[in-house]
């Protein structure tokens, strides 16, 4: 298990692995939004929680197809499916690796992007907390979407269509927590819901994803 995690991290961080692309994309989103809505600080600070969450979600989506597609193409997935590690475990590890190279950096760097968008001061801890709690679910659901579309030509676009509706509850509770934090209200309720969704997703999605992978391998 550790070997798989280390390999995926090594592949992601080596040249051509695409590490940091998600962060760059996040930066671009946060740069483009003020061009679209105008530079007025009050307005930006009002929409900042939503923009930050939608931006994080889209950045996460960007690299999902890499979770399985490369392993499928070079035959590694066939070999992993016949390895002693259960396929559910493989899925969970690969989703965890994806989170470590996209979700975690996004959550940790989000305050910087919050500055760009005039996010109100009290919201910062809640922004990091909600992203830390919510992005694992994004990676895991993304792994499910990637597993469903892994063998398909032009699977990337279809995967977005399948995965984005699944992201709705996570987005709602995540952004709501930041919004409440920004307004000085108590953000604990949405955070608890967010954590519940993430835990349930982590518990169940590996089975659905492994089932989809088995179908795509045969």
């Amino acid at each position: 298990m550790k070997a798989l995690l280390i390999r995926d991290l090594r592949l992601a961080t080596r040249a051509g692995g695409g590490f940091g692309l998600a962060l760059a994309f996040f930066l671009i989103v946060c740069t483009l939004v003020p061009f679209g809505v105008g530079p007025e600080g009050g307005q930006l600070s009002r929409i900042a929680p939503g923009i930050l969450w939608v931006g994080a979600l889209l950045s996460c989506l960007l690299s999902l197809d890499r979770i399985f597609a490369l392993d499928f193409e070079d035959g590694s997935l066939d070999l992993l499916a016949t390895a002693p590690l259960p396929l559910e475990g493989t899925v969970a590890i690969k989703a965890f690796a994806h989170w470590l190279v996209t979700g975690l950096p996004l959550a940790l760097s989000a305050p910087v992007f919050g500055l760009l968008l005039h996010l109100p001061g009290p919201a910062y801890p809640w922004l990091v907390a909600s992203l830390m709690l919510g992005t694992p679910a994004l990676s895991m659901l993304g792994a499910f979407g990637a597993a469903v579309t892994v063998g398909l030509r032009r699977g990337g676009l279809l995967m977005s269509l399948l995965v984005l509706p699944l992201y709705v509850p996570t987005l709602i509770f995540g952004a709501e927590a930041v919004r409440r934090g920004a307004a000085g209200a108590d953000p604990v309720t949405p955070l608890v819901f967010l954590a519940a969704i993430t835990l349930a997703t982590l518990a169940l999605a590996p089975f659905a994803a492994a089932a989809a992978l088995r179908v795509n391998l045969r």
Partner: peptide, 20 residues
């Protein structure tokens, strides 16, 4: 297909499968 990662060396590829 051989299940090899182009970015890893031959020994790294082999060591990975050995650990798995």
């Amino acid at each position: 297909s051989d299940g090899l990662k182009p970015a890893l060396t031959a020994a790294e590829n082999l060591r990975f499968w050995s650990e798995i």
